[in-house]
Design a protein around this nucleic acid. Structure first.
Lengths: 231, 231
DNA sequence: CGCCAGTTTGACCAAGATCAACGCAAGTGG
DNA sequence: CCACTTGCGTTGATCTTGGTCAAACTGGCG
C-alpha cells in the first residue's frame, strides 16, 4: 500500500513524512514538505468508491483517518482485498490504469495528490525518488509475503497472521479494534466469512483471544498467536 | 520480478534496455547504456542458489539466459515461488535484506549489478529513476493479480492462467516450452504437483492442449484456455 | 540392464466451502 | 414504546475440491 516513504518496516507504526530520518539527513526536507502541501483533503463515506479498477491513475492518496480497502474483482463477483490502508498509509500510486479499485471501509478522510505535480517534485529530487522507490519495494516484499500466506498457509495460520499484522499496524495495545467487517477479513485472507468466524471462535475457545464485541478483539496470548502464524 | 524498465506491459516480450522508447525519448540513453556496462556476467548451474532469504541485498540481477525462480520458505518446508524470471527479466532489486531467495531452475547466465553503483546512476538521472519506479509498480500490480489468483481462483483457473502467462511471456508460438518441473509449477500456483498433473491431463483430455513430453505443451485451443483463466 | 528423477494416475481423506438457520443489535415506522 | 426489518455475525450439517498416500510409468544414463 505504498506505506509512507522512509518507514523502514511495514510493521512499524507509520511515521509522518516530516519525521523521516533518512530523508531529513538528505537535507531535502523542503521537497517533502512541498509534497505535503500540494494535497487536497477529501471525504468518503462508508463503502464509497474512491476509484474503480481501470480508471486512469492521475492521482494518489494518503489516508488521514479511517480505513481504505484496495480490491480486485472477478467477473462472477469473487472478490479479493489486496490491502487495507490505515491513517498515514499511501495508496493508489499506479503508473497508468488502476489495477485495483479502492473503497472506504468506514468514513474516511484522505489527502489527494496530483500525480503530475508530485512527479515533478520527485524528479527534481533523487532522495525523494529513492525513498519512494524503497517504499514501493517494501510493498512488493509484503505482497510476496501475502502470496506465501494465500498459497501455502492454513486457515488458522492466516487468521493468526492477520491478527498479528493488525496488532502491529494498529493499536499495539492488548485490545485490537478492527474497523472492517468479517466479510472483508475473509476476502483479504482468501477464506469464507464462515471459516473466519469459526477460526476466531476456536481461538477464543482456546483462550488465545477474547471477543467482547465483533469489532473488538483482545489478544490474551500473543506468543501463541505468533506461534500459529509462524514466520 | 522487476521486469525490464520501460517495458510497458508484463505480457510483452521483454525488450533490451536500449530499445526502450520512453527512455530514448528522454534523451538519456547514455545512462542506461552505462548501467548495462557495470554488470558482471555470472553462471549458475541447475538448482544452484543465487542468494538466500535474509542475505544482504548488495546487488541485483538480470537474466541473460535460462530461468530463475524467486521463492519463500516456511519453517516446516512448505515453499512458495513468488515469480519466474526469464531472459531479460530483472530480479533481486531489494532495498535491504532479501525477502526471498533466488535459485537457478536450469543452467542460468545472469548479469550482476552492484546496487551502490547502479543507484548512483539512478540518482543522477530522474528519467531512469522513473522508469525503474514504474517497473517496480508494474511488478506490484502483477503481484496483486497473483494474490487474487491464489486467494480466489480454482485449480483449473490457476493452471490455465499459468499456461496463458507462459505463452505470453515465452514462445508465443503454439508450442510452449516449460523449463521448470511440475513441482515448481505447483509451488507457483499454490497447488500440489498431483493437482497440476491432473489438471493438465484434464485439459489434454478436453483437447485444449497437447503434451508431447512433460516439458512441452501445445496450445490447441487458446480461446478455451483464456476463457477458463477469465480475466 | 537397472536405477533414478520426474511424472502420471488412482483411491481415499480432510480442510474448508456451501447451504441453512438462528442470534443480535441498530435502526425505522406505526 | 413496541413490532419489524436489515445487516452482520455465529453455529451446525453436509458436500466438494483439492490434498495425501501409494503405486505405476517414462526416459535418460551409468
Amino acid at each position: 500500500m505504498y506505506r509512507h516513504f522512509g518507514n523502514s518496516d511495514h510493521r512499524n507504526r507509520v511515521a509522518e513524512l516530516g519525521d523521516d530520518r533518512g530523508f531529513a539527513q538528505s537535507g531535502r526536507l523542503d521537497a517533502l514538505v512541498a509534497l505535503e502541501c500540494i494535497g487536497v483533503r477529501v471525504r468518503f463515506s462508508r463503502n464509497a468508491e474512491i476509484y474503480a479498477e481501470g480508471d486512469e491513475a492521475d492521482c494518489w492518496y494518503k489516508v488521514v483517518s479511517g480505513t481504505v480497502r484496495v480490491c480486485k474483482l472477478l467477473a462472477d463477483g469473487r472478490r479479493h482485498i489486496a490491502e487495507f490502508c490505515f491513517s498515514g498509509d499511501c495508496f493508489g500510486l499506479d503508473s497508468t490504469a488502476r489495477p485495483c479499485s479502492a473503497e472506504a471501509v468506514d468514513d474516511v478522510i484522505v489527502m489527494r495528490f496530483q500525480r503530475r505535480i508530485a512527479e515533478r517534485l520527485i524528479d527534481q529530487n533523487p532522495a525523494v525518488a529513492r525513498l519512494l522507490r524503497e517504499s514501493v519495494l517494501r510493498d512488493l516484499a509484503t505482497a510476496h509475503g501475502r502470496t506465501l500466506l494465500l498459497g501455502r498457509m492454513t486457515a488458522p495460520e492466516r487468521v493468526a497472521a492477520f491478527l498479528v499484522e493488525m496488532f502491529e499496524r494498529r493499536d499495539r495495545t492488548k485490545a485490537l479494534d478492527l474497523p472492517m467487517p468479517r466479510n472483508d477479513v475473509a476476502d483479504y485472507l482468501g477464506l469464507t466469512i464462515e471459516t473466519v468466524c469459526r477460526t476466531l471462535s476456536a481461538f477464543k475457545r482456546e483462550g488465545v483471544i477474547a471477543i467482547p464485541n465483533p469489532h473488538r478483539i483482545e489478544l490474551l496470548d500473543r506468543d501463541a498467536l505468533e506461534a500459529i502464524a509462524e514466520t
